[in-house]
């Protein structure tokens, strides 16, 4: 890992088109400004990791469907349908 020391207002250039600016340092908090090409997504690491885990979990859960090992079409029964449970409590649910 490359470790650099920067002061507020100073920058780091990554490649040809990513510019990271140290905006402010306050106690344990550092504010960064990031200029990157349009369309390049930038995430806080904890959010990126959490979404990654949800995606992977969704894919794994699907693989666990009973008919998956047979290479046959997945059983609709493996997925819940609105008729199998009462309307959602945390948010409204479309009537089945």
């Amino acid at each position: 890992m490359l470790i650099l020391t920067r002061r507020p207002g100073e920058r780091v250039v990554i490649g040809e088109d990513v510019l990271v600016t140290v905006m402010e340092v306050s106690g344990q908090t550092v504010r960064l400004g990031i200029a990157a090409p349009e369309g390049l997504p930038i995430y806080r690491e904890e959010i990126w990791l959490a979404v990654k885990e949800e995606n992977r979990a969704a894919a794994e859960a699907a693989d666990a469907l009973p008919t998956a090992a047979d290479g046959l079409p997945a059983s609709a029964d493996a997925l819940p349908t609105p008729s199998q449970a009462a309307p959602a409590g945390k948010a409204d649910q479309r009537p089945s």
Partner: peptide, 16 residues
Amino acid sequence: PGADLQVRLFAPADAA
């Protein structure tokens, strides 16, 4: 607000 990573799709029957 409320757009969480894990939101229950169905509620328990006794929660209706």
